[in-house]
Design a protein around this nucleic acid. Structure first.
Lengths: 229, 229
DNA sequence: GATTGACTCGTACAACGTACGAACAAATCT
DNA sequence: AGATTTGTTCGTACGTTGTACGAGTCAATC
């Protein structure tokens, strides 16, 4: 009876972590974390954060609700796994590019774009989940920065600054990229407050937003400061 | 019967918006939005986001759960109001300071600090709520930037960039400012992954974080770029 | 053939948000 | 004065949620 799992286990119901279940018997309808997470993402895409319930998720999987709990500790873990799964990065992994700026831009824009393809993911960001895909991105980010000349002592702050900026921009965009109907309503609501918020009106905040351009600009400025010339 | 409320009303239960209820009769235990919001903040501070339920909130107010719904449309509105209430800014409101950089720093650091005093507020950021206090801060921010020389066309992007950075930094800090116990656990979990994430280890991510210093540094870099010299 | 272990799921429970409408009180009208 | 309206409170009830518990199934192993 050697311990086989990774961390502290203790709980009764739990699959082993990392190895194939020894022999999957025929049926493709067998549950697995992969299938659960993929279906959770589907459901989240279709119904939003509040639309994901353990029962509905199980229904989509053709399973009983309680069956999920063999593969997953609780609903929170489903969210954690769904969030991380959306952040997989297929892209150059090398840290030693001549074009370090391009590499960072590529990875971070892909990051933001990936989340915007699944807007629910932005609202899941305020959690302590550092899944493997997020960690890989942070690792790559640090590798590029280090290769670009950021001192070891500054690496920590540089990584966090960029992370902060990316998740902030993603959350904002996901929340305030209003539909036309919403924008008309917002415009009307702000209209008779224009004497109270003249600058907001001047900036046409919420109305004319070049989200992508602003994102790139801010990123440029951060990198100008973070990476020594 | 002139329309008295502000926006579209239509709902049955709702107090008038903005004017005092004409004559508050003696009892200080009467419900009001102010009391509801203040108590909601107390409850959130004490029990966290999941600890706030309409029943518990009503209990604290010495009222029945359904009484809340006269003052508030639904639970979401309680969250919106609680979030905005935490973001009140008492500080210099002028936009034409010689020390525009100091004014921005003061306001944004106060913003972040205020939210960190109520960590639940960080997880409420991914919502579309632009309450009066948030709007005032954005207005002030825009005013300072405009006064510092940011072109009208760049104002929108500049405001959003700073907002993005601030909320990202706040969320990160609120989520990853681990307790000693958590940190020990995280360290152990990452330890045997150090060959997979060498740079994360090199940067001592999650372990030695100078949150405040990193926040100020990134802010400096953003302002260097956003405001013309 | 008996035992183990991995996996599934029916039932049940406490807690949730809130619709509905009855109750009461103060203000206003006649 | 009484009658009526208007503002506010709240008891009850319904549908839905996350998940504890334990019984069930089936393949692998002894």
């Amino acid at each position: 009876m050697a311990a086989k799992g990774g961390g502290a286990q203790g709980k009764r119901p739990r699959r082993q972590a990392g190895s194939v279940p020894s022999m999957q018997q025929g049926s493709e309808r067998a549950l697995s974390i992969e299938r659960i997470v993929a279906t959770a993402v589907e459901l989240l895409d279709a119904e939003g954060v509040d639309g994901l319930t353990m029962r509905r998720l199980a229904d989509r999987l053709g399973a009983g609700a309680m069956s999920l709990y063999w593969h997953v500790d609780n609903k929170e873990e489903v969210f954690d796994l769904a969030l991380d799964s959306v952040l997989e990065y297929r892209g150059p992994q090398g840290g030693e590019t001549a074009d370090w700026r391009g590499a960072i831009f590529h990875m971070l824009e892909d990051w933001r774009a990936g989340m915007l393809r699944h807007p629910w993911s932005a609202s899941l960001l305020p959690r302590r989940a550092l899944g493997p895909n997020i960690l890989s991105r942070l690792e790559l980010l640090g590798r590029i920065l280090y290769g670009a000349g950021v001192a070891e002592a500054d690496l920590n702050g540089a990584i966090w600054s960029l992370w902060n900026y990316v998740i902030g921009a993603t959350i904002t965009r996901a929340n305030f990229d209003l539909s036309d109907a919403d924008m008309a309503a917002a415009q009307q609501r702000l209209a008779h407050l224009s004497e109270k918020y003249p600058t907001i009106e001047r900036a046409r905040l919420l109305l004319d937003n070049d989200w992508d351009g602003a994102f790139r600009k801010g990123l440029d400025f951060l990198l100008d400061g973070l990476v020594p010339k």
